[in-house]
Amino acid sequence: MKAGVLALQGAFREHREILSTLGAETVDVRTPEQLAAIDLLVIPGGESTTMQHLLDSAGLREPLAAAIADGLAVLGTCAGLIVLAHEVLDGRADQVPLDAIDIVARRNAYGRQRDSFEADLDVSGLPGGTFRGVFIRAPAIETVGGAVEVLAEHNGRPVFAREGRVWVSAFHPELAGDFRVHERFLQEVA
């Protein structure tokens, strides 16, 4: 199992460290050649506008969309959720997401950095109690399509969801000091 982490910008190192700890072979993905050699991909938190710009300049947008359509398993956290969404609200006019999961995302839905927060989440099917959700200038999942399974909510809003092999979280499991979300993703997409 070769796990790629999109390493254009953001918190890619934390994801790699967790995936390595869980026994996966890991690699940074910055080029189409690196993308072609992986079995699953994590798109980390960071700035989604920066990431989309770099996806285009690196020639990664089309190969990535094709790989996901072909069944590549993907976990997108925070900015990664925005990149994978069907539609983005409050984004830039030229911000075109990959439409890999049937959700509508709203950028910076919880406010500015002073509103960033942590909260305990009950994650459906995750053993071992609540999971500490770290939300940093986080996006919200405004609506989900019929084929999307919601795995966790916060104050009645979905914050963790999946459709097929595409998983998205509005929070940062890579900052929780708790590997259970990554562990479950690896188990279920293997």
Partner: peptide, 26 residues
């Protein structure tokens, strides 16, 4: 299934976390 307890703002993890998100950028 929602955590409805009062969220914690301004924690060291949240404050350092934004810096983590800016890595590799300009």
């Amino acid at each position: 299934m929602s955590g409805s307890d009062t969220p914690d703002i301004g924690t060291a993890r949240v404050k350092r976390g934004l810096a983590e998100m800016l890595r590799g950028g300009v």
